[in-house]
Design a protein around this nucleic acid. Structure first.
Lengths: 327, 327
DNA sequence: CTGTTAGCGCATTCAC
DNA sequence: GTGAATGCGCTAACAG
């Protein structure tokens, strides 16, 4: 019976047919739990994201799931909403469920939890933050590549006062983006007045607040680079309230290139970080560890390149700061 | 040992302490699989959505997960991307994983799959489409309530030619919304020229195409009601390309009230269908069946009211069709 | 109160 | 090539 189900080649076809018939009749479905218990493999991957309501993540989740389905894996999803407690709980629950690996796409992570995972010898894949040790793979994102393009694009459009709205700076990824911006500016000999570096939260609200802050300045920026697309959308939204026309009065650049960015008004010029590739790498990293012949001693390192995609939210710098009527 | 872990009251505190100590030292985590195998309860709920990349769903998923975590449940997520094959596979996999119940938030479902689920006596909860039988609960959405408000709002703003861009009409929910619109129009004695009823796909692309179609009309509409917010966003995007100003040249109403709707330019007037409540009902329905004393003979029926929320995308009808320059 | 044992559903032995 | 026995990690039932 077990042999038939699992298509062991050495079963008599006649017997097999009889078994299958009964299986049909009874509507028998194998019990994956029991199977996992004996095999030691659950065929479940944990997927931890920081905020499923941020449109960046669903696209990753979808890609990841697509691949998982093809490989007969299930996915256990957790959205930590940036809560370390929640993250800890998530890791614990994944371990208890005996997942075969976990992809941690939170762009930031507590050290102690990594320990816990490593201790179980669970394959793990991180973005940006993972340590360089056996069993944990990493997807390193080359922020510099795309952000440099963005900065040079704006410079070419004769923007001088270029602002940056960062993400929450306790996230490594947010810091990395900010640093990449600063570096790119320095590369072309630009100054970075501190008042043009404001803090956001990777959400629309942060973008709105950020722009308000920037517009309160005596000497306003003519362009603003945002740490992610949601921030940029917030900026555009706030600009609308101020009666500003984008890109005429203000150029805006985002980061991530979520699908939505093609559909904003105007469509957003942004730095693309492929969600599909990210998901692919993450899955590949896990499955390599699980099904790979030799458990890689080091965990694989992937690099994800970022690139500017030009759309409609950037234009030549206005020759003078146009007067804008406040809300 | 088992008794200690499970906090059976009758264990000697001293022994308990010793056990816990060892548990700590070994970093022991109970194996949920084995537990599930004997108890017959996996404490996993399946959650099937039609398209996680549609921002409407992540908000539900987040709420559902929040509640699940509180109740110590895990969630197995599947996004079917409207593929019946994929849906069938999802159901099968959920059964194999022995989930304790499944919430099907696809706003549409094949009959045969329902059979399959019922046969296993798995608690199921549907939106809109579920049959009225034991073990399956339903969340019925009152589309009429909110859509009537939308129509009357537009009528009050003196709109006469009001268009409707539907969703994919093989979805019951899309049909229900369309019907609600038609009914609301009839209620106030309005005609519905067929050329003003166009088909979309519940995505931005559909909204864009829909508007193109409508603007090609000899006698253009001054307002358009959309079957969901994504469609409305597409409409606004396309309107921008036509150089139209919303709401001056065209009033737009969405449906769903996803978070993003507050942040579009202009913010979208839309019919709210609470994602939080939807998730709450769905979870409650499942947990009632699982932990309820008497297995309800009928499955619970919930009703979700919809309501118009006024924002910035609607205004008085223009007195004449302004000339608009094409792209 | 606590040590022991059977069995959950399956895959993997080992005999035949 | 196939039936039967063992054990995966755990809880429940049974003795002590």
């Amino acid at each position: 019976m077990s042999r038939t189900i699992n298509r062991v080649p050495s079963v008599d076809p006649q017997l097999a047919r009889r078994v299958w018939k009964v299986v049909e009749e009874l509507g028998y479905y194998p019990n994956t739990q029991a199977r996992a218990l004996v095999s030691g493999k659950s065929r479940i991957f944990g997927l931890i994201v920081s905020e499923i309501t941020n449109p960046f993540f669903p696209e990753i989740v979808q890609s990841f799931e697509d691949i998982a389905v093809r490989h007969n894996y299930e996915i256990l999803l957790t959205s930590t909403i940036h809560d370390p407690k929640r993250m800890e709980l998530a890791v614990r629950r994944m371990i208890e469920r005996r997942v075969d690996g976990v992809a941690i796409l939170t762009f930031g992570m507590e050290e102690t939890l990594i320990e816990d995972l490593r201790f179980r010898k669970l394959p793990v894949v991180f973005v940006d933050v993972g340590p360089h040790v056996p069993g944990v793979s990493n997807i390193r994102i080359n922020y510099q590549h795309g952000i440099r393009q963005a900065v040079q694009h704006l410079a070419a459009l004769r923007h001088v006062r270029i602002a940056f709205i960062s993400g929450p700076l306790h996230l490594k990824s947010a810091v990395a983006r900010k640093t990449a911006f600063e570096k790119s500016m320095h590369e072309i000999g630009r100054e970075l007045p501190t008042e043009l570096m404001v803090a956001g939260d990777h959400r629309m609200e942060g973008g709105m607040r950020g722009l308000v802050e920037l517009l309160a300045l005596r000497d306003r920026p003519t362009a603003v680079v945002c740490s992610n697309d949601m921030t940029a959308i917030g900026v555009m939204r706030e600009a609308y309230d101020y009666g500003m026309i984008i890109p005429r009065d203000l150029s805006v650049v985002g980061f991530d290139d979520i699908r939505l960015s093609s559909f904003t008004t105007p469509p957003l010029t942004t730095v693309q970080m492929s969600q599909t590739l990210l998901a692919e790498y993450a899955f590949k990293a896990l499955i390599n560890e699980v099904e790979g012949t030799a458990p890689s001693k080091e965990g694989t390192e992937y690099e994800l390149i970022t690139n500017l995609v030009l759309r409609g939210s950037t234009a030549l710098a206005p020759t003078q700061n146009l007067p804008v009527k406040p809300l």
